[in-house]
Amino acid sequence: MITTVEAVPFVAPKTQGAGVPDQDLVLASKNLYVWFGPRMVLADVSLNFPKNSVTALIGPSGCGKSTYIRTLNRMHELIPSAALAGQVIFEDKDIYDPTVNPVDVRLRIGMVFQKPNPFPAMTIKENVLSGLKLAKLSNSNQNELVEKSLSQAGLWNEVKDRLDNTGGSLSGGQQQRLCIARSLAVDPHVLLMDEPCSALDPGSTLRVEQTIRELSEFMTVVIVTHNMQQAQRVATYTAFFLLEDNNPGYAVEHGPTQHIFGNPIDQRTSDYVNGRFG
């Protein structure tokens, strides 16, 4: 995998910032490099995600945030031209170790996508329970689980009377919350969210943010967002990604959210979070 890719003479600057404590980590990437075909899109990303924290990933479009979180639960490898180097440590084990089954990784590291993608051939209820069926898990009280997951995603009141309608009959924002409920139903240890609120109205957005804060009592969340206020409202830690010219993207600064937004170390972080940036 690595040998087929030419070495690119790009050395990513070291990630700055107050950093994140490195004990009690659930998830961490170590010197992660990512390619699409011959093109390196991420260089030397090492980030830590402590247990029960919320980390926001921010940065301009195209800098590789989506690509990065897709490497965290082995969704990246589904793209035929994809390649990578480095490690992703989840609960003390490298998920790219050849002995690890990607299916187990994805079961415990859930994901919510940028575009809502409910299963159109299933009802709302079946959508919520789909994770259990797909992974052959069992649950004794399905109705309770459906209600709990939908309430956490802030959708229960809107759909409780039509759980047997298809997922496609919901509005875009409702579909997205259905997808969140679907991810929560399998009770993952980590939830990766790629701009989960970009299709939501302000009310649903606040509801989802509330959900994220509640989840962080027992779950680790990584969320990509373009909304600076949102990052400040939900995230314990924030990482700022950047891409310059034609170089790969990399993590410029990583630290507690107050530091990144209050007194960032890097000038470019300061420019970006204050909206003085392209």
Binding site: V103, R106, G110, F113, N117, F119, A121, G131, K136
Partner: peptide
């Protein structure tokens, strides 16, 4: 069948076979 649906199912921890039998084929019924 949209690629999104396959991604969604895989991200929920489904094996390839389950993605085909529970998501792809029913969607294309």
């Amino acid at each position: 069948v949209p690629e999104d649906l396959r991604s969604a199912a895989l991200a929920l921890g489904a094996s390839r076979a389950r993605v085909v039998s529970m998501v792809v084929l029913p969607t294309a019924k």
